[in-house]
Amino acid sequence: MTEDIMQSYARDGYVSAVPVMTETEAAELVAKFEQVEERLGPSIFKLLNVKGHLLFPFLWDVVQDARIVARVAEILGPDVLCWGSSFFASKRALPMWCRGIRMELAGG
C-alpha cells in the first residue's frame, strides 16, 4: 500500500479506487446484483442493506475475497472482521468503474 493511500485513510477515514478485481469480475458481480433486483424488485438492497453478505452468497464471497481482506489488513492490521456491509449498484448510465461496493470494516 502506498504512503498516499495510508495518508488518505488517516485523513478521510476511507480509501477509494483501490483495484481488487478485474473488470470481468466486476461485470459478473453487477450482473448478479441485477439478477437479484429482477427477481426481488429494485428496492431489495434498500430493505436489506445492513448485512446483505449474510443473505446472498455472492456478497459473502465479496467480503471474504482474500484480495479485499489483504488490502484492508494492510491499513487496519491482521485482525479484520466484517461487521456490516452496504452494497449498491449505481445508475446503469454510469461507466462500470463508477459502480461501487462499500464495506464497513472494523479492525481489532
Results as ranks from 00 to 15, higher is better:
F33P: 06
Y9L: 02
V15D: 05
A10K: 10
L47V: 15
V36T: 04
L40F: 10
L40C: 12
G52Y: 00
K32M: 07
P42K: 08
A10V: 08
K46L: 15
A10G: 08
T22F: 14
L47R: 15
P42D: 09
A27K: 08
E38H: 05
S16N: 04
K32C: 03
A27R: 14
K46P: 13
G13Q: 02
G13K: 01
T24E: 14
E37V: 06
A26C: 04
S43I: 01
V18N: 02
E23P: 13
V20W: 04
A10S: 09
F33H: 08
A10W: 02
A17N: 05
T24C: 13
K32A: 10
A26Q: 05
L48F: 08
L48W: 08
V15E: 05
A26N: 05
P42H: 09
L47A: 15
G52I: 00
E38D: 07
G52N: 00
A17V: 01
Y9I: 00
L40A: 14
E38C: 03
P19R: 11
A27G: 11
S8V: 09
E25L: 08
E37I: 04
N49L: 08
V15I: 10
M21K: 11
L48I: 10
E23W: 12
A10D: 10
L29K: 02
R39P: 04
L29F: 02
K46Y: 14
P19Y: 04
G41A: 02
S8A: 10
S43C: 01
V20G: 06
G13R: 04
E28H: 13
R39Y: 05
Q35Y: 04
I44S: 04
L47M: 15
K46G: 15
A26T: 06
E25S: 14
T22I: 14
Y9P: 00
G13W: 01
G52L: 00
V20C: 04
S16G: 03
I44C: 05
Y14I: 11
A26V: 01
E23G: 14
P19C: 10
T22Y: 12
A17D: 03
M21P: 09
V30G: 14
V18Y: 01
V30R: 11
E28L: 12
T24L: 13
K46I: 15
R11W: 10
E28Q: 14
Y9W: 03
L48Y: 07
N49M: 07
E38N: 08
A31H: 06
F33Y: 09
E25T: 12
V20H: 02
K46Q: 15
I44H: 07
V36A: 03
N49E: 09
K32F: 02
K32Y: 05
G13V: 01
N49F: 02
K51I: 10
A10L: 06
E38S: 07
P42G: 13
G41S: 02
V18M: 02
A27C: 11
Y14Q: 11
G41R: 03
V18W: 01
Y9V: 00
A31N: 06
S43M: 01
F45D: 09
A31P: 05
V20S: 03
E34R: 07
L48G: 12
F45N: 09
A31T: 07
S8N: 11
A10M: 06
L48H: 08
D12Y: 14
